[in-house]
C-alpha cells in the first residue's frame, strides 16, 4: 500500500502540472476537432456514395470520436520520453531512485491521461452531438462497461509504447518500429472499423492487439452488446497483461546493458 501511495503522489503531481499548464492542450484540442471535422466530411461523402455495412453514419461519427479519444486524446509522450532518457543516458540518474522506472513512467503519465480523457471526452461529446446527434439506441447503463474497455485499450497502448521506447536500449534507431505500430493501430481500428476489413484480415486482426486499442472500446460505446463485451474484454485483459510483461521484460533486459561513465 505504501508503495502504491508514492506512485499516486507522482500521479497527483503530474495532474497538478498538466492543469497548471492547461493552455498547452489547446493545440491538441484544435487538431482533434480538425480530424473529426475532416473525417465527418469524408464519411458523409462515403455514405452518400453507397451503403456501408455494420454502421450507420451517426454511429460511424461517434465511432471516430471515441477512437480518436482513446488514441489521440490519451497520448502521453511516453515513447519519446523513454527514447530520450535511454539515448541521452539520463536514465542512469533514475536507476538509483526509490521507484521502479517503468511504474514511475506509467503513474507520471496517468495524470496527463486523466486530464486528457476529461477534456477530450467533453469535446468528443460536444462534436459528436453537433455533427451526428445522439447515438441511436444508446443506453447510459452500458456506459460503465464500455469504459472498462476504454481503460484497457489505453493500458495496452501505453505499455506497448513503453516497450517500443525501451527498444532504444538495444537498437540504434527505433523510430520505424514506432511508426509501424502506430499505423497498425490506425488501420486495424482507429480509422477503419474491423468489420470493414476483408474477411481474411478480420480473422487475423482479432488475434492481434492493435484492434483492441481503439476498435473494441469504440464498438462497445456505439453498439453495446453483452456478447461483444464478453468476446473482447478477456482478450483485452490478456493483451494488457502481455504488454505490461513485455515492457517490464524489455526494461530489465535493457538495463543490464547500461554502461555508466560518470558525468
Amino acid at each position: 500500500m505504501a508503495k502504491l501511495r508514492k506512485y499516486l503522489v507522482v500521479t497527483r503531481i503530474s495532474l497538478q502540472n498538466v492543469i497548471a499548464y492547461r493552455s498547452s492542450a489547446l493545440g491538441g484540442l484544435l487538431f482533434y476537432s480538425l480530424f473529426i471535422f475532416v473525417f465527418f466530411n469524408l464519411w458523409r461523402a462515403i455514405y452518400k456514395g453507397g451503403e456501408v455495412t455494420g454502421y450507420s453514419l451517426t454511429q460511424m461519427i461517434w465511432y471516430l470520436c471515441i477512437t480518436e479519444l482513446v488514441v489521440f486524446g490519451c497520448r502521453s509522450g511516453v515513447y519519446n520520453q523513454m527514447n530520450d532518457d535511454v539515448k541521452s543516458g539520463s536514465i542512469a540518474y533514475q536507476l538509483n531512485r526509490p521507484y521502479h522506472y517503468v511504474m514511475f513512467q506509467f503513474f507520471n503519465a496517468l495524470g496527463n491521461m486523466v486530464f486528457n480523457l476529461v477534456i477530450y471526452g467533453i469535446l468528443a461529446i460536444i462534436l459528436g452531438l453537433i455533427m451526428a446527434g445522439p447515438i441511436p439506441g444508446f443506453s447510459f447503463a452500458s456506459l460503465p462497461f464500455a469504459l472498462i474497455s476504454v481503460f484497457l485499450g489505453i493500458i495496452i497502448n501505453f505499455f506497448f509504447m513503453i516497450t517500443l521506447g525501451l527498444t532504444a536500449f538495444r537498437l540504434e534507431e527505433n523510430f520505424a518500429f514506432y511508426l509501424i505500430y502506430q499505423k497498425l493501430v490506425f488501420m486495424l481500428g482507429m480509422f477503419i472499423p474491423v468489420e470493414f476489413l476483408p474477411k481474411w484480415l478480420q480473422s487475423i486482426a482479432l488475434y492481434l492487439p492493435f484492434s483492441y486499442v481503439a476498435w473494441a472500446p469504440a464498438r462497445l460505446v456505439v453498439a453495446f452488446s453483452w456478447d461483444l463485451f464478453w468476446q473482447v474484454i478477456p482478450v483485452q485483459l490478456v493483451w494488457a497483461l502481455v504488454s505490461i510483461l513485455m515492457s517490464l521484460g524489455m526494461y530489465s533486459y535493457g538495463v543490464k546493458g547500461i554502461q555508466a561513465h560518470g558525468g
Partner: peptide
Amino acid sequence: LNNCSFVFFWYIAFSQIGG
C-alpha cells in the same frame, strides 16, 4: 511504410462503396 498504410485505408474505403 507509414505512408503506405493510407493506401490501405483508401482501398478499404473504395471497396466498401465502389465508384
